[in-house]
Write a protein that binds this DNA or RNA. Sequence first.
DNA 1: ATAGTAATGAGAATGAATCTCATTATACGA
DNA 2: TCGTATAATGAGATTCATTCTCATTACTAT
Lengths: 140, 140
Amino acid sequence: MSEENEWSEYAARLIADAGLRRSTPRQRVIELLAEQSCAITALQIDAALDGVGRATVYRAIEQLEELGLVHKVDLGGSAFGYEKLEPSGHHHHHIVCDDCGKVEPFEDEALEDAIHDIHRKGFKLETHEVTLHGHCADCS
Amino acid sequence: MSEENEWSEYAARLIADAGLRRSTPRQRVIELLAEQSCAITALQIDAALDGVGRATVYRAIEQLEELGLVHKVDLGGSAFGYEKLEPSGHHHHHIVCDDCGKVEPFEDEALEDAIHDIHRKGFKLETHEVTLHGHCADCS
DNA sequence: ATAGTAATGAGAATGAATCTCATTATACGA
DNA sequence: TCGTATAATGAGATTCATTCTCATTACTAT
Ligand SMILES: [Mn+2]
Ligand SMILES: [Mn+2]
Ligand SMILES: [Zn+2]
Ligand SMILES: [Zn+2]
């Protein structure tokens, strides 16, 4: 099974388990998110889905976030980005060019290890976000 | 010399080197940021400084950011936070409770080492931001 | 099929951040 | 010290991502 379908179906399952209905608009938001390999904004989703209202897009994102299916990321622009969170836990982080706004995903095993070693009493840690800032080759 | 004064004077020097004037409103923004040990929002700064306009607060923050004196952080609320960046490079990151919004700073040497070992060709890395999300004791 | 209610979407409202522009303050040379 | 150039300011308007409202629609279970 492709990774997109895997996530879509996992999402459908959690949605059902949460007692939510299987509605077409929310389903389309899920499918669009499933196709993306990196972050996309709420307004991009809204624009891509004719017939799906803005409010529905934001509501769907909020629910997916609460179910741990989607992750909100600040990529330096004027809007937040959202990307699916694989059930395996496998994920990437981002490098942002502070001059032109270009975003590149990256993965780093040592970084993940260091993060997983962090414990703070009084806090149950769930997710994390790492963003590196700098200047890309074109802007240097 | 206290760390606040150290940063204030460092900021004053960079402001001067950049050819900017030593204006009272901008100076007051700098001093307020110097007093904080963690992030504060632009509107909190504006509210704390009577006689200093909102536009001036945002402009000052933008300039300080460009000079590498201030760091913008997304702490999950409706507005961004800003905190001073010590000339020594010494800094902390944040743990956020996704339920109540509580923010706690933390430092981790191994994490910093892992981040400094990250290199990406075509990118000159400057700063980084790490945010851990979870649930605090009160909300668990 | 029907009832019960979750979900939707158009549009209004909110609010952080940005922009405008007339006025003021600062730096610097005379 | 004075005058000039212009950086900087602040009130208010504006933008625009996000949230809210509420009448209507569409799931789902019976
Ligand atoms: Mn749409
Ligand atoms: Mn103010
Ligand atoms: Zn990670
Ligand atoms: Zn760090």
